[in-house]
């Protein structure tokens, strides 16, 4: 299956391991990702925070380029995903915005394609049955808490995907690849990523709270599907934090893909945990 793919800035920078693990598992699961040509930053969150129309226009350029590809679009970053969903509606409702963007790009926009988060595609299009069949290295004895963060699942009218207060998709994926998914309190708490550089005090408090709750639930690590969540929880706890995995990395390991170059990039080193459980080979 072919999909238009929007990686977003993080996957090319601070979240390179999310980008490379996404490419690897999609290839293994038969999804052909075709990058949106010449995509730009979606503008989150400075665009929409300071100038509504500019925020919409920055995201709209990508939607126009993606629609031209004639495929449904998959987005890996939660913030980009949420922006595109909102902008798709704005382009349909605001004829002036649409008209100006069509003029700038020289391409008409109908919004006749789907915009989906990667988690949705892996779960609902590839499906758990296929994934289970492909697992060669079940992540046995790995105790994880699923962390969804904010805008992948809410508000539901926008995301059209899983439950907004008690989502299950990452939980079920974790179980499908042989690991244990623990119930806990903070699966949809916000990590405060939009204040990551500006109010470090607030973000540290939020990230610490979430990691503490994960520890209390008995988790050895956290599984997430957002580059901003991963960065905050991985970097802002300090010493004695928990490893924070992208769900694509966990899936990759379970599918038997060599993922050292992903795992080496984490700030909180996940290799001691994985080696102790024999899930990756030691040095």
């Amino acid at each position: 299956m072919k999909l238009s793919y929007f990686p977003g800035c993080s996957l090319d920078g601070t979240a390179k391991e999310y980008g490379s693990s996404t490419s690897a598992i999609c290839q293994a699961l038969g999804l052909e990702l075709i990058e949106v040509p010449d995509w730009n930053c979606c503008g989150a969150s400075s665009g929409h925070s300071t100038n509504y129309l500019l925020g919409q226009a920055l995201a709209a350029r990508n939607l126009i380029l993606a629609e031209k590809q004639g495929l449904d679009m998959v987005v890996a970053c939660a913030a980009c995903f949420s922006r595109f969903k909102k902008t798709n509606i704005a382009l349909k409702e605001n004829a002036e915005l649409r008209g100006k963007m069509e003029e700038i790009m020289g391409i008409p926009y109908k919004g006749s394609f789907q915009i989906r988060h990667l988690l949705d595609v892996i779960y609902n299009t590839v499906g758990l049955e296929t994934i289970k069949k492909e697992v060669t290295n079940p992540l046995k004895d790995l105790r994880l808490v699923p962390y969804y963060g904010c805008v992948i699942v809410r508000p539901h009218e926008l995301t059209q995907f899983d439950d907004e207060e008690q989502p299950q998709v990452i939980d079920n994926l974790i179980e499908a690849i042989g690991a244990e998914s623990l119930p806990w309190s903070d699966k949809t708490e916000c990590c405060g990523a939009s204040l990551a550089l500006t109010r470090v005090d607030i973000v540290k408090k939020l990230a610490r709270g979430i990691v503490e709750m994960a520890k209390e639930a008995g988790a050895q690590a956290i599984a997430t599907a957002c580059p901003l969540c991963q960065a905050n929880l991985d970097m802002r706890y300090g010493e004695d934090g928990l490893p924070v995995f992208y769900f694509t990395e966990l899936l990759g390991l379970a599918l038997g893909i060599e993922g050292k170059n992903w795992l080496e990039r984490h700030i909180t080193d996940p290799l001691p945990l994985l080696t102790s459980l024999n899930l990756v080979k030691g040095e």
């Binding site: 904010c150 539901h156 949809t188 916000c190 939009s194 204040l195």
Partner: peptide, 11 residues
């Protein structure tokens, strides 16, 4: 300025 746009409230 501190609102993180996390959509908990609107949900």
């Amino acid at each position: 300025w501190l609102c993180a746009s996390c959509e908990t409230c609107s949900t």
